[in-house]
């Protein structure tokens, strides 16, 4: 564990909590992509199967359990409890365009041809693009509530900090995982446009809206 990874994990944790609180406090999931949330739940399910096979640390297990339960909690709030507020007309990104390439790529490019390993690889590829339905939704409506933009910023920052962690681990331990690194770079790059608008608008107290 190093400081970059810790900040990354906490940023991820913070993003999930912001989203849950936003939905809970406003009793509404308007502006949130249910499709991205389902993809994230699938990412956690396929990645954290090792919760039952490999023990790493208490921290590691607790975080995995939190990510899994919170992602199902979010889905429950969106698709059941506050279903009426779900903006499904704007949430139309075709997720098969993300699922199928991630699955094919996981079968082709992996560290080992083994069920758990392929599922882990699939989760890494899918996570890198899972935010696209959400970004697509924001681009369709042209704006986002500031709380949603804080959520997106924390979620994007998480993988960015992981990149710093991988650089650190490469120099300090000689450890590197090319699959995670390349997917993590793709994931972070997808947020760049959003980061730019967040910094130039939201942090100056303006509403998050796309340039006309």
């Amino acid at each position: 564990m190093n400081i970059f990874r810790l900040i990354g994990d906490l940023s991820h944790l913070f993003a999930i909590i912001i989203l849950l609180l936003k939905i809970w406090k406003t009793r509404s999931c308007a502006g949130i992509s249910g499709r991205s949330q389902i993809l994230f739940a699938l990412v956690f399910c396929t990645r954290y199967l090792d919760l039952f096979t490999h023990y790493i640390s208490l921290y590691n297990s607790l975080m995995k359990i939190f990510y899994l339960t919170s992602s199902f909690g979010t889905i429950y709030l969106m698709f059941f409890k506050f279903k009426a507020t779900y903006d499904r007309n704007h949430d139309t990104f075709r997720v098969e365009f993300l699922l199928i390439p991630s699955a094919v790529l996981a079968l082709l490019i992996n560290h080992e041809f083994d069920v758990l390993e392929i599922l882990w690889t699939f989760s890494i590829y899918l996570e890198s693009v899972a935010i696209l339905p959400q970004l697509f939704m924001v681009s369709k409506t042209g704006e986002a509530e500031s709380i949603t933009s804080h959520y997106l910023f924390a979620l994007g920052a998480y993988r960015g900090f992981y990149i710093l962690n991988w650089i650190y681990r490469y120099y300090s331990e000689g450890f590197y995982d090319l699959i995670a690194i390349l997917a993590g770079i793709v994931q972070t790059v997808l947020y760049c446009d959003f980061f730019y608008l967040y910094i130039t608008k939201v942090l100056k107290g303006q509403k998050f809206s796309l340039p006309a």
């Binding site: 991820h12 640390s57 992981y162």
Partner: peptide
């Protein structure tokens, strides 16, 4: 490298 397969990151 066994290390890469024991995914210790989240």
């Amino acid at each position: 490298n066994r290390n890469t397969r024991l995914h210790d990151e989240l």
